[in-house]
Design a protein around this nucleic acid. Sequence first.
RNA 1: GUGAUUGUAGCUCAGCUGGUUAGAGCGCCAGGUUGUGGCCCUGGAGGUCGGGGGUUCGAGUCCCCUCAUUCACCCCA
Length: 425
Amino acid sequence: MAQFQVVKGAKDIFPEEIVRWHYIEGVIRSVTALYGFSEIRTPVFEYTELFQRGIGSTTDIVGKEMFSFLPDPNGRSITLRPEMTAGVMRAFLQKYPGGGVPAHKLYYVADLFRKERPQAGRQRQFTQFGAELLGVSSPAAVAEVISMMMQVFDSLGLQGLKLRVNSLGDLDDRARYRDMLRAYLEPFRDKLDEPSLERFDKNPLRILDSKNPAVQEIVAGAPKLLDCIRSEGRAEFDRVLGYLADRNIAYEVDHLLVRGLDYYGHTAFEVVSSELGAQDALGGGGRYDALSKELGGNVEIPAVGFAVGMERLIIAMEKQGLFAALTPHGPQVFVVLQDSSLEDQALRISDRLRHAGVSVESDLAGRSMKAQMREANRLMAGFALFVGQDEVASGNYTLRNLKTSEQFSLSLDAIPGVLHESSKQ
RNA sequence: GUGAUUGUAGCUCAGCUGGUUAGAGCGCCAGGUUGUGGCCCUGGAGGUCGGGGGUUCGAGUCCCCUCAUUCACCCCA
């Protein structure tokens, strides 16, 4: 047992797995480019107040899940970012105090930190891919953002995802609905569970997405949030749905969908996968027009965005066998030494081949030829190049194709050409 | 924060109601082939049985504590 192990809720990613990340990130880069989104990177920490103001101090994230610390005794508290949206908005407002041009399209792949108990699909350090469209939040903009997210899933080959959408209306709509919901739930008070009762006073909307079957039954008959939304909000939501239908994006309106972060308003959405276990949300997002003012901006910057959990994406893809094609490939050539006295010769040859663009590996542990061949095989090298007394003396080296077991005797200069030919087949 | 679960070799795990030197498969190393891999055969290295305490003539096995893991709740990606 090792003395040290990774910090609880964190994870090491070794080369076998990193190829998956590279693959997914590649798809993300190409799809976001199709929609005109560019990458943004912001610091991993921000002043704590940014999240308190942005996400909302009553949310669980801010209330009990932040990694906060004082960089120096009299300094301001700093927090490892638990989400990206507040930081992106802060960066934007800092660079464009006047709001900039109407549509800024930004995406990110970033590490986030939340002090929760780890479980399947949940870590304390995790990664989200997300996008923020700043300056416009029209129905077309909302549809565009959802569309981009779905295209990423589609390009990765994911099947069976469910897109759920709902409208949270504006602040007035929600206030009116809150009263209605309380009035409806009042008679059921004695049947609600502990957490629901707590939410009854603090944030009754959250009772809607309870996992407790007993609560779900009660909630099923509750008035619908959508019915409380006044005509403009309703029309806007209908236009979003119209755009989605137009683009053949399957969705279902989920009246119980309420997002956990304070800054969301109007359209909110979520994508779930049945491959994920209890934590089944692959991604989610919505409109957050109110955030810019909340953070002290001079002007309101309408905005829409989403975030997708990369680790959850990988779990879902793994379950669907979508990484099968990602076979690692070994070096083109593995240099095999007859004995260690030829080491400097071998190094010279490796160097020459590498400068000719050939990937080369060799045994660095001074082992037997048999062990070297096994190593070449394990690494899945294409060829073995034998370096022995005869080769060094004659200048002609034995090159063995490890797939076909054919061997040739070649001069060093001829080798890159032969490898180039064989890689074309 | 709450509940449950698991913790034996590098990895995956076995170890019956407590009983002598703790096992298997895979992996690793070496040899069979003193210039040649993948298959096969032979041998070898490698374990404070998570840690501490207790019960017992005797504990991997029972009890307590502790640490870690995993899953679920809460909440979220």
